[in-house]
């Protein structure tokens, strides 16, 4: 299957980009590994400290108006006490992957920052959805990461689409075709499969690769993460953070509903909370700038 993004797929129109995507942001693996085994924030700080660029950005964030510190924050330790360990980890994860996701995808009609904004919205929605469903902390944190990375495959499938515009994808706006089906028909694989293949090179836990692969078909895996991200993706699309030609041309799978125990009242609540969290999400989105 790995060969598909190197040789077999018609989406492989840009070898340099493929290589860029395949290289793993090292800090992401380390943070996720640490979080999974023993979420001790002091050790997480030690990992962050080794990355000078991310450390600088975290200190900038902790000193920004959004967190209005009483006195200047000059160390990661005081940043943690000021803005909280979960917030620090979310910021580090976003900083680690923004360079790969913050790009326009003309083949999908997505402009500058559209993919990144959609990814951040989906990550927040997945995290909140996991909390509403009373999932454990590790599942919630994994849902955030998968939400952020779920569409990374589009960065590659876009390479084919922008060179060979697929008329059904354009007309998805009119005839209601499903974007995943159109990708499979024309590229021989879809962005979910492609994304999973990219993430396999990062050596992240299998649960992350699996959820990315099945985020449009959550019934094909036992993992609840795929269902959570499936619904979080839908929440982002429904609330206008989908973007592009295919903004809402995807199916919502009943399985995701059953697996998560989510009901319509919870979903409405999620949509409202996302709207209320808009300024926080926009701030996180701005990290990529």
């Amino acid at each position: 299957m790995r060969e598909t993004i190197n040789q077999g797929s018609r989406s492989n129109a840009n070898p340099k980009l493929t290589e860029q995507l395949k290289s793993s942001p090292a800090i992401l693996n380390q943070i996720l590994e640490k979080y999974r085994n023993d979420p001790d924030i002091d050790e997480v700080i030690e990992i962050i400290r080794l990355d000078a660029e991310i450390t600088t950005r975290i200190l900038e964030i902790a000193n920004s108006a959004a967190f209005s510190p009483g006195s200047p924050v000059t160390s990661l330790k005081s940043a943690v006490s000021n803005i909280g360990s979960n917030e620090i980890i979310r910021n580090v994860i976003c900083l680690a992957v923004s360079g790969k996701l913050d790009r326009p995808l003309s083949g999908y009609g997505m402009e500058d920052h559209d993919l990144w904004r959609h990814s951040v919205y989906t990550a927040y929605a997945a995290e909140r959805l996991g909390q509403i469903c009373s999932m454990d902390d590790e599942t919630v944190q994994t849902a955030f990461t998968v939400g952020l990375l779920h569409d990374i495959g589009k960065v590659l499938t876009n390479e084919y689409l922008k060179r060979h515009p697929v008329s059904p994808l354009i007309s998805v706006t009119k005839d209601g075709a499903d974007v995943i089906q159109i990708e499979r028909n024309n590229l021989f694989m879809d962005h979910a499969q492609t994304g999973a293949e990219i993430i396999r090179y990062w050596n992240l836990p299998e649960i992350i690769t699996d959820a990315i692969r099945y985020h449009h078909a959550p019934g094909n895996t036992q993992s609840p993460i795929a269902s959570i991200v499936h619904l979080a993706d839908a929440a982002a699309h429904i609330s206008g953070h989908g973007y592009g030609f295919s903004a809402m041309a995807s199916h919502i799978d009943q399985v995701a509903w059953e697996r998560t125990g989510f009901n319509s009242e919870m979903f409405y609540l999620l949509l409202m909370e996302l709207q209320i969290m808009e300024s926080e999400i926009e701030r996180m989105m701005g990290l990529a700038r």
Binding site: I238, A247, M248, H251, I252, Q254, F267
Partner: peptide
């Protein structure tokens, strides 16, 4: 008022 597809009674918010 657009809608995604599937599970219509639950998600047809549009």
């Amino acid at each position: 008022g657009a809608d995604m597809r599937g599970a219509r009674n639950i998600f047809n918010i549009g």
